[in-house]
Design a protein around this nucleic acid. Sequence first.
DNA 1: AGCCAGGGTCTGC
DNA 2: GCAGACCATGGC
Length: 279
Amino acid sequence: MDQPIKKNNFHLEISPKEFDVAQTLDCGQCFRFTKESENCFSGIVENHFLRIEQTKTEVIFHNTTQKEYETIWKSYFDLDRDYNNIKQALSFDPTLKKAIDYAGGIRILKQPAFEALCCFIISQNNNIPRIKGCVDKLCEVLGTPIIKGRYSFPTPEALSKLSKEDLKEISLGYRDEYLLDCAQKVVSGELDLAQVATAEISVARDLLRSVKGIGPKVAECVLLFGFHRLEAFPIDTWIKKVITKYYPNGFPQQAFAYQGIAQQYLFHTIRTHKNELDG
DNA sequence: AGCCAGGGTCTGC
DNA sequence: GCAGACCATGGC
């Protein structure tokens, strides 16, 4: 491992209302970032390490050039999209408005597709702290070291070569065979991620669900967080509760194009602040 | 200690 | 098409 070259920090002037780093990285859409302190997180994306810090007026990308910000992080954090318009459009609904007031700093990340695919296979019937633990271990055992103690996410090839017994040390439970099926189908080309990326969404859904262990919910998460399909709408146990309580007649159609973002605002709000949506 | 977690598969009607 | 058993593991 080469000694990393010390660079300047890149400062982005932005309010936490528009981009809340803690909410974005700790809302269950991504399992690759660690909270270092109240306003500082660090993590790996592809083969890049990032330490990111928030103040009242700016977000600081540590040891990052402007060019790296422009080519890597701007896209990853979806910072070239105008969320104000989207939030305004979603505010017609009183429950959504409350979720936006509470969690409106969340941005939907553009995560690497294969990573999102694997992470959300692991996520099924599992809780977020343990998912993180499993993903960490997976990277440590099979990934490539990026900086001290931090590893890239394994390639499909690396994963596909394992046996169920090899995966035992990761403690995935019954999900180990699902992960292997996924990696093997990606390597063989039976599941073509480039095709998922461009296919019409119902086709993309069916392609993903050809993997054992990917059902309706996981497919929606992969589409939303790994392929940035903002109309994907994952329904987990928390969102089920939200729908039962606040949307007994169904989720409003007006939200359709951005219902994935709406879903994430609701998910984070109900999970971390149970009564916030009550009126 | 026991319920629950960003669920899915398989079986039996 | 749909309900119910079952699936590993560990957080809380």
